[in-house]
């Protein structure tokens, strides 16, 4: 043994500090994140006839369903917007959040096999899910813009405005919320599998608590605080307001959502980080 103090590149220890998150590792594995994204993207529609067209068919069918059921049969108001555009904007935005949440919530259980055999920063998986969903979102959103253009040409009253510039921030917030909730649930499902079933149902319910199929303005005043407490509400409203020019939009509510997201992400990452050290023993 040498006398001089030795330097070690890595020390494997039982417990990590609460904030010892190894985020630098995640950066070092950025190629892996991108390859995961590619894998998810390429593998999903292999051996399907329509292939990537499904990215367009899914929101289209949902939108048509919503338009028929909530628009024509239930006759819910849409802030004076064309029903089709109103539901489509809601669907596309909501799908991104919901997919981020449900897919990340399965991180540990679905990857137990892989995680059990090799180390890489576990966060690479949820982060890659956010990114691959982002591609889906971009495709679907472009599709939405195409419909917007079509409706504008046919004379619908649409008023896109400068708030469009904050839309990347809105996407970021949705990704953050989806990730945060997703990895919290994912961490808990290593022990309690019940949550997996709850997630599907919970996301469905949450959609009805978010102005996806109805505008905030249609909610009675006494329920307003309740719906505004949902951090997704300001995001959906801001989106509609920026692109279609209708709806109740308040930057303060958006700030609340942002704060909410930051908290959820921090809690999520910390819990995730704690669980990842020993989840192989409990999963």
């Amino acid at each position: 043994m040498t006398d001089q103090p030795e330097t070690w590149d890595l020390i494997i220890e039982p417990k990590r500090g609460l904030l010892d998150l190894h985020l630098a590792d995640l950066y070092r594995y950025r190629d892996l994140v991108l390859l995961f994204v590619r894998r998810d993207f390429v593998a999903v529609y292999k051996q399907t006839i329509l292939g990537p067209l499904w990215y367009l068919i899914q929101p289209l069918l949902t939108t048509i369903t919503f338009t028929v059921i909530f628009g024509n049969i239930a006759q819910l108001p849409t802030d004076g917007l064309p029903q089709f555009l109103f539901y489509m904007s809601g669907t596309v935005i909501w799908t991104y959040f919901a997919d981020c949440l449900t897919k990340t919530s399965n991180t540990f259980v679905n990857n137990a096999q892989l995680f059990g055999k090799v180390y890489f920063p576990r966060l690479a998986v949820p982060v890659s899910i956010l990114l691959s969903n982002l591609i889906t979102f971009a495709i679907q959103f472009t599709f939405f813009l195409a419909f917007m253009g079509f409706f504008a040409l046919t004379g619908a009253d649409l008023r896109p405005n400068w708030w469009i510039l904050i839309s990347p921030l809105l996407v970021f917030m949705m990704a953050g919320l989806g990730l945060g909730f997703g990895i919290i649930i994912s961490s808990l499902t290593t022990k309690y599998r019940d949550l997996r079933f709850l997630v599907q149902f919970g996301v469905q319910l949450l959609m009805y608590a978010t102005p996806v199929i109805y505008p905030v303005s249609s909610i009675p005043a006494r329920f307003q605080p309740l719906i505004q407490a949902n951090p997704m509400t300001p995001i959906v409203e801001a989106f509609r307001y920026a692109f279609l020019g209708a709806g109740s939009f308040n930057p303060m509510n958006l700030l609340y959502s942002f704060g909410f997201m930051v908290v959820v992400v921090i809690i999520g990452v910390v819990i995730f980080n704690r669980v990842e050290a020993t989840f192989m023993d409990t999963v």
Binding site: E6, L10, I12, V118
Partner: peptide, 17 residues
């Protein structure tokens, strides 16, 4: 598994270069 960081040890440590 401990060396490859798949799971964490209960006590003790491993130093690696």
């Amino acid at each position: 598994k401990i060396l490859s960081r798949v799971t964490a040890p209960t006590s003790g440590q491993v130093k690696v270069k």
